[in-house]
Computed example of a mutant assay.
Amino acid sequence: MTVTTDDLYKQKCEIDSITFSCNEAHERLKIIRGYYASFMHASSLFKKDSVDGAEITLYDYPPNPTERTPRYGSHQKIYMSLQRSGIRNLADLGYILQSYHKLRKKAEYEIHLEITDDDVNDAESYFNECPARIKFYQQNGNQHFTTAKKVINASITSNGVKVNGGLRRLK
């Protein structure tokens, strides 16, 4: 049986509920598992038919490569391709994933560095935002990603701005 992206997300959430005697190791493990869940989920965007009619280009090299330009690494290939997609939501996702990747490398390889409260908060923010952006893209395509809940209807008249009806809740 294969491991799915949902399995990875669930695993990270289960780790949250486990009590460790070493809090530092616990936080490092949560960062690592959360990153891999987000990375695998973002990687699925590059499979054929991941979104109706849309296919995102997977780049192996930076723009304008020479014969000496190194190829992207497997993780770099995903976040750099998202950044170069031309779709604002996915480009932002690429930058978030790149930051998350740096944090994952710190948690996994740089044992001599302390995992700070800011690192933990950043990891939780990235963990929550990555699937939200992917889901939004899959449902709405190339629309602007927003989490706004209210809008103000306004129109410009010859006298200036006129507010029509105040705040309206989006559904």
Rank of each mutant, 00 (worst) to 15 (best):
K135Y: 01
T147Y: 14
I115Q: 00
K171Q: 11
R71T: 14
S125V: 05
G165C: 15
I152G: 03
E114V: 15
Y35T: 07
L167A: 06
D7S: 08
V161L: 08
E27N: 14
T57L: 14
A107S: 12
S85T: 08
A37Q: 09
N89Y: 07
V3M: 15
A154V: 08
A42N: 00
D117H: 05
E14P: 12
T157D: 01
Y72H: 15
G34Y: 11
Q11D: 13
I31N: 11
S158Q: 14
N121E: 13
Q98V: 04
S44L: 10
K149Q: 11
D52Q: 09
L8T: 05
G160D: 06
I156M: 02
E114I: 14
A25K: 15
Q139R: 07
I111A: 09
G34Q: 01
K12N: 07
A25S: 15
N164P: 03
D52Y: 03
E67D: 04
D60P: 04
R88A: 08
G73T: 11
P63R: 00
G165F: 11
P70N: 12
V151T: 00
R169H: 12
S21L: 07
I56W: 10
E114L: 15
Y35C: 03
R88K: 13
S74L: 04
R168C: 03
Q11T: 09
F136L: 01
K12S: 09
E108G: 03
K48H: 15
D60W: 05
L90T: 06
D118C: 03
T2G: 09
L113V: 01
I18Y: 10
Y126K: 05
D60E: 00
P63A: 04
K10V: 07
K77W: 02
P70C: 10
S85P: 05
T57P: 00
I78A: 01
Y61M: 10
P65E: 02
N23Y: 12
L167K: 06
D52G: 01
K106C: 02
C130W: 00
S38T: 13
A91W: 00
T5Q: 08
K102H: 11
S38C: 14
E114R: 15
V3E: 09
G34L: 04
T57D: 07
